[in-house]
Design a protein around this nucleic acid. Structure first.
Length: 888
DNA sequence: CCGACGCGGGG
DNA sequence: GTGTACGCGTCGG
């Protein structure tokens, strides 16, 4: 029988001494199917000097029962003819690493570190999320949970469709004792929530608890123990049979935790579509979770890595609020989970709701924000399995190039190991890899006329294509073929001699993208347009990052000359362009970076300025073959502080109206350690400078803010900086304001068991203590009439970013602050530092002391406890102790 | 301008 | 599982 399916996953297992490939996928009808294939063996290539061949062949045959065939292939690096290499076929993929090491002792292995499943997929032309047709017989098996077919033939087929998948989002709650992050070795899971799309047996969600619980809610289910809950969880996963498992930070937390808890009870964590248990791999920092037959998609991972999604913090609270306008449920801090769990009743209901909400948010992120679309397409473009498409760029290029090399009879190099990595490190330190050129900026504010910005559309891909740059066209030594020399003095054969693989791949990516964009214009269904857009983005990603792979130190195709050639052409190009425009047009180049040039014209009219831009674009493009220098945007006013830092009043045409916007690069107005006052002042100063072109007004505005600060007129909310307490307080080494505040809060309220997980807002109050010690809770400041420290806010929050701006305008700090009332200035910068107000009222007592360690001081510390030992402190008078100083 | 730490998310 | 794979910000030199 024949079956067609979209490929979700692929693995292999050894069966009766032979590897059995298993391709997991879904049919058009949405039925999960696994295709077996048992006639494929692991192989790789070896190049061994003639005099060592006999020994090598004998040893590898003896040790591994390998069979050897001599074949002709091109080598991956350097232009040259095919050479004779040995194709070594083994019996077990597990032996290949050892065979590779053996080969290194005699010569050079190739393709000896390609994962077996990718070896198979590349040879059969199968791609992740692509479609295949298999012909074979139904197979009775208990190793996979879905229908299985033992295939005679497997081949890729064309089908642009994406099968609707089944999604399950999950979230667990645990209750560690004390101030710790939960540890699977010690702490129990108390509940697991799951959200289903589409629904499971009439449930769109379900929550299971690690204790018996009667609930009128059909979606809530108690179990006698954690172990029973975990069993139930595995049952639900098997019964629902999701394709995608998602959740927030499940790779680093929930999945490893569940897996380990199951193991402690002797339960095998089989959550996949075969007999293999969940595989958790911890790398230096992050975790890798593999569940065969399914895809684990961690929304946190996806969002954190997406360069387009920038947040102050990447916790679920922040991300959900920004992206979904939906919030996590508030249960009063993470430490409250235990109390809610123990209390039962309504409190437990609330905790259940809290747990469900987290799963719902993760599901919404995936489904409403279509977070996975691009990864489906990246899988199809690169050939990687969807699970692996979440990884880095390098794997995508590696796999894409493996396919391309194979089609051309070129063998792929292995990844660098110990010695080779050392060599590369040293080479890089010695020679260096020169990057792009950044033109010296004309620092300052540019007004009058306009600033045109033009840039080279996909510069590096264009260079790779135009100059046929590739490891396979790189000339080493003598050659009779015709070649050209790059600005960094590397030689590449002309395209007429041999087209490079990189140029061919880039061309395919760029042309496919153009075709997809054309399709988008005629498509009508939103669903289709979305998918096409994702595909277009994936193609763009791949095309633009291929250059990076050539210069990546762990690349299989790392040749400094090749990476250097691309950037050297880039540098030459932008320098040439600068000359071209300055010599032939009435413009002055103000700045340029890598592929863009900013030029000042005296044309104020937007339409005429654009016309000039188009003119320049055509002129340059005509003179630089293979590249397109495109008009991008106009700035009416442009402020440049330094390389990579500028702001401009941008105008872009949409339809036939001009839309304006303030654009900022490298000048952040939002940063997590800045208070709102700073953010707001930055934006306003930039707005005044760029839109009103009135630096006097900007200075006056700044003075007003400073004045407001010194007079205590700025609301505390605008001065508050929020930071999260992420670990136990004793785990912090250095001094951080929010941590010190947390310590104070704990001291003030002994009922608090932990601050971990809390987000603390703080302001800095007046005083002599170290900065961090002067962080205070805004509410406490209000209640007790404390004063904020205006000097801190002016010197540390407000002025540093503003000074950089005024600097570029040639305005000094003195000028900015001039005219702020003399009294305030003296108070703030003049020297004498005022003590907290209540200290002046210590009538009758002459100091403060700690009875326990003897610490003493003239003024009480804000913490209200001894800064040395944390014990209670007392008023003192002539050696006798007074009463306990209660800070509140 | 560097190299080495260190941290993120989760309960 | 034929794997070794961050990336940015801060701090001290």
């Amino acid at each position: 029988m024949k079956v067609q399916l979209q490929v979700l996953d692929c693995d292999y297992k050894m069966l009766r001494g032979k590897p059995l490939i298993r391709v997991y996928g879904k049919t058009e009808k949405g039925e999960p199917v696994c295709v077996f294939y048992d006639r494929f063996l692991p192989y790789f290539y070896a190049q061994v000097p003639d005099e060592k061949k006999d020994d090598f062949v004998r040893e590898i045959k003896e040790k591994f029962g390998a069979s050897i065939e001599e074949v002709e292939r091109y080598l991956p690096i350097g232009y040259g003819p095919k050479v004779k290499v040995m194709k070594i076929t083994g019996k077990d993929p597990g032996n290949v690493p050892e065979m590779k090491e053996l080969t290194y002792r005699y010569g050079t292995p190739y393709e000896a570190d390609i994962l077996f499943r990718y070896r198979f997929m590349a040879d059969f032309g199968i791609k992740g999320m692509g479609w295949i047709e298999a012909d074979g017989d139904l197979e009775r098996t208990d190793t996979v949970s879905c229908k299985a077919l033992i295939a005679d033939t497997i081949k890729p087929i064309e089908n642009p469709k994406n099968i609707p998948l089944k999604y399950m989002a999950l979230d667990i709650e645990t209750i560690p004792d004390g101030d710790r992050v939960p540890e699977a070795g010690k702490d129990e899971i108390i509940m697991i929530s799951m959200v289903f799309k589409p629904e499971w047996n009439g449930h769109d969600k379900t929550v299971i608890l690690a204790k018996l619980h009667k609930s009128p809610d059909k979606d809530v289910m108690g179990t006698p123990s954690e172990m029973e809950m975990l069993k139930k969880f595995a049952d639900i996963v098997a019964d629902y049979d999701p394709d995608i498992i998602t959740g927030y930070n499940i790779n680093a937390f929930d999945m490893p935790f569940i897996t380990e808890r199951m193991k402690t009870y002797g339960l095998l964590p089989q959550l996949g579509r075969c007999e293999k248990p969940v595989l958790i791999k911890k790398m230096q920092n992050s975790m890798l979770v593999s569940i065969t037959g399914r895809i684990v998609a961690d929304t946190y991972d996806v969002i954190k890595r997406d360069p387009w999604m920038k947040f102050k913090r990447y916790d679920l609270r922040t991300v959900a609020k920004e992206l979904l306008k939906s919030e996590k449920l508030d249960i009063g801090g993470i430490a409250e989970i235990k109390a809610h769990w123990r209390a039962g009743g309504e409190k437990l209901d609330k905790l259940i709701e809290y747990c469900v909400r987290d799963s719902e948010l993760a599901m919404k992120l995936v489904k409403e924000k279509n977070l996975l679309d691009k990864f489906y397409e990246l899988a199809k473009v690169s050939g990687l399995l969807l699970q692996d498409a979440f990884g880095g760029q390098s794997q995508r290029h590696e796999n894409k190039l493996l396919y391309a090399f194979k089609q051309r009879d070129i063998i792929m190099a292995c990844k660098p190991e110990g010695d080779e990595m050392k060599r590369r490190d040293i080479e890089r330190k010695k020679v260096g890899l020169k990057g792009a050129v950044v033109l010296e900026p004309a620092v300052g504010l540019h007004t009058g006329g306009s600033v045109l910005v033009l840039d080279f559309a996909s510069l590096y891909p264009s260079i790779i294509r135009s100059f046929n740059i590739c490891p396979t066209t790189y000339v080493r030594g003598e050659t009779t073929a015709s070649f050209h020399t790059s600005p960094n003095n590397a030689r590449f054969v002309d395209k007429s001699v041999r087209e490079g693989v990189l140029p061919a791949v880039v061309t395919e990516l760029v042309e496919t993208r153009a075709a997809v964009k054309r399709q988008m214009k005629t498509a009508t269904e939103p669903e289709v347009i979305r998918q096409l857009n994702a595909k277009q983005l994936a193609l763009k990603d791949m095309a633009n990052s291929l250059y990076g792979y050539t210069g990546y130190i762990r690349s299989r195709l790392y040749v400094m000359d090749v990476a250097g050639a691309i950037t050297s052409y880039g540098r030459e190009n932008i320098t040439k362009t600068k000359e071209l425009v300055e010599n032939n047009f009435n413009v002055k180049v103000l700045y340029g970076d890598t592929d863009s040039i900013f030029m000042k014209t005296d044309i104020a009219d937007l339409d005429r300025a654009q016309q000039k831009g188009e003119e320049i674009s055509a002129y340059v493009t005509e003179r630089l073959p293979g590249l397109k220098f495109a008009f991008e945007k106009i700035f009416k006013t442009f402020l440049i502080l330094s390389k990579k830092r500028y702001a401009g009043w941008k105008f872009e045409k949409s339809g036939d109206t001009w839309k304006d916007k303030l654009e900022m690069k490298g000048i952040e107005t939002v940063r997590r350690d800045w208070c709102e006052l700073t953010t707001e002042s930055m934006s306003e100063v930039l707005r005044i400078i760029l839109k009103e072109q009135d630096s006097k007004k900007a200075i006056a505005y700044t003075r007003d803010v400073v004045k407001g600060l010194s007079e205590g007129k700025v609301p505390l909310e605008k001065l508050t900086v929020v930071k999260g307490v992420t670990r136990g307080l004793s785990a912090y080494k250095g001094m951080q304001p929010h941590v010190e505040l947390a310590k104070k809060l704990m001291a003030r309220d002994p009922t608090r068991s932990s601050m971990v997980g809390e987000r603390l807002g703080y302001v800095i109050v007046k005083g002599n203590a170290l900065l961090s010690m002067r962080a205070e809770d805004p509410a406490y400041v209000k209640e007790n009439g404390l004063e904020i420290d205006p000097q801190y806010y002016v010197e540390n929050q407000l002025l540093p970013p503003l000074e950089r701006i005024f600097d570029a305008l040639g305005v000094s700090r003195i000028e900015v602050l001039e005219g702020v009332r003399q009294k305030n200035l003296a108070e703030m910068f003049g020297g004498k530092k005022s003590a907290p107000p209540e200290l002046t009222t210590l009538n009758g007592w002459d100091g403060i002391t700690c009875r326990k360690c003897g610490w003493s001081a003239a003024v009480p510390p804000l913490a209200g406890v001894c800064p040395k030992c944390g014990d209670q402190i007392f008023f003192s008078k002539g050696g006798e102790l007074g009463k306990f100083v209660k800070a509140a």
